[in-house]
Each structure stands twice: as C-alpha cells, then as structure tokens.
C-alpha cells in the first residue's frame, strides 16, 4: 500500500442527487439521535457510486456536514478503507484479487495482462477506460482467479478471457458477469456433475471414521513400543551373555 491522499484535481462541488439524498436520509434515520455518525460508511459509499467510483474532497465534506462530524473524522475513514477511491479510476475500475488461492490459480498471469494493457496500478489508461488495483481476497476463491470490475465479479479467468473481457468492455459490447468458463456460480464445470463422487460419502461409513483412524494409529504405536521393548530386552540379554562368557 502507498500513502493515500486526495486527488490533486478536484471537482468544484459535490451534491447528492435527489434520489441518493433520500436514500442517505433513510440510512441516517436507522440510527438513534446523536449517533448519526454511524451512517458515515454507507454515505461515503453512495457518494463514491454517484461520482464515477471515486470520492472527491467536496463529497467528504458534504458527508461530514450531513452527519455533523469534523471533516478530519470522515477523512480518516476515507483514507483507511481501500474500497474508497480517492482518485479517478476510469470507466471500468478493475480490482484484481492477488491473495493465495487466486495466486495459485494464475492471478499473476492476469496481473501481467493488466500491467501490459493498462500500465501501473492506480493509474487511469490514456483512453480513460481502465484503472486497476491489486487487492486482498474478495471471497470468490472457488472461482479463482477473479477480478471485480465496478460492481461485478468476473471469475475463472485466463489471460485470454481477461483480454477478451477488456476488449469487450472497451468497445462497449455486453459482457457476461460471473464465471467466464460457463459454469454457474461455483458449481462444478459443465458436464462434470458433482465432484463428490466417492460412494462412501453417502453410505454413512465416514461417520466416526476418525475414531478408527485414531485407534489404528494407537495400535500401531503400541506395536512399535512393544517391539522396541523386546529389542531392548534381547540386547540386554545378549550383553549379559557376552559378559558372562568373558568372565
């Protein structure tokens, strides 16, 4: 992570739309009088959604004014959560999961594609279409590797499919949200049915199986211990016999 600062170029003002303002009032009303500050994250979130997925300074101040908080309190929150973007992120903001399951399934290849096509992280491409950021686990490990673009997940990616995805997004063509290999959610791949094919899973034999494993382990330990004892005894016996012979 790098130090998070507000963007250099800022819009002159920020105002919630009528609809969002009503939504914000609903959020604020959820909390008892004097605890309005609790609504700060939903409000920031809404402001960010309204402002092309990034938070300008005026939005932070607007939210602070709405909740009667000192500006610095809201800035603290906006700079803490990496989900709040403090700088413009292009039309399609790509968050690439780089945590272990995704990394094992090839997130680094996806990363290479993003680096090649868009450039460095936190940097809007020249056409204004894309910016990307490597983030921690987004919770779609079953479908690794994956990226989040704006509000949607795109999963089971390969370098080819992410390339195609970016092409389609750039051209404004419709794209398929979710798995890019055609499977539904995190079900097994089409045609494979279930992955849980072992019959013992269904006949009840695995219930309590751990106990058998334990018993077996204990029994083998016992056998080994007895064997060791017997060896020791015979060695002593041999030694005694040797000593007697010598005498």
């Amino acid at each position: 992570m790098t130090v998070r600062r507000l963007a250099e170029k800022q819009p002159a003002s920020f105002e919630f739309t009528q609809e969002n303002r009503a939504w914000c009032d609903d959020q604020i009303a959820k909390y008892p009088l004097g605890r309005q500050a609790s609504a700060v994250i939903p409000l920031l979130w809404k402001a960010q959604a309204q402002n092309d997925y990034w938070l300008p300074q005026k939005a932070i101040e607007k939210v602070a004014d709405m909740l009667a908080m000192p500006y610095i309190r809201v800035l603290e929150i906006a700079t803490f959560y990496s989900m709040f973007n403090l700088e413009p992120v292009g039309r399609h903001f790509i968050q690439l999961c780089g945590t272990t399951p995704c990394a094992l399934r090839g997130a680094n290849d996806i990363k290479a594609v993003l680096e090649k096509r868009i450039g460095d992280q936190r940097h809007v491409s020249a056409d204004g279409n894309f910016a990307w950021l490597e983030v921690e686990c987004l919770g779609a490990c079953c479908n690794a590797p994956m990226v989040q673009i704006n509000d949607d997940y795109f999963e089971d990616l390969t370098p080819d499919s992410i390339n195609k995805l970016l092409d389609d997004l750039a051209a404004g063509r419709p794209v398929k949200v979710g798995s890019q290999t055609g499977r539904t959610a995190s079900e097994p791949e089409p045609g494979k049915g279930t992955t849980l094919t072992d019959a013992t899973l269904y006949d009840g034999s695995v219930v309590g199986a751990w106990r058998t494993r334990f018993d077996e382990a204990r029994a083998s330990e016992k056998v080994l211990a007895e064997k060791a004892l017997a060896e020791k005894a015979s060695a002593e016996k041999a030694a005694a016999a040797a000593a007697e012979k010598k005498a």
């Binding site: 992570m1 507000l6 908080m69 000192p70 500006y71 610095i72 309190r73 603290e76 700079t79 803490f80």
Partner: peptide
C-alpha cells in the same frame, strides 16, 4: 476535532484536515 490519523495502519499519519 481538529486532528486525526489518516491512512490508519502501516501508513498512519497524524494531521489536521488537509
């Protein structure tokens, strides 16, 4: 409420609002 800690975590900085 003048002062605060931005970027809480490894990059925490004590500052006033901007």
């Amino acid at each position: 409420g003048d002062m605060g800690a931005t970027g809480r975590g490894e990059d925490m900085e004590i500052t006033t609002y901007l």
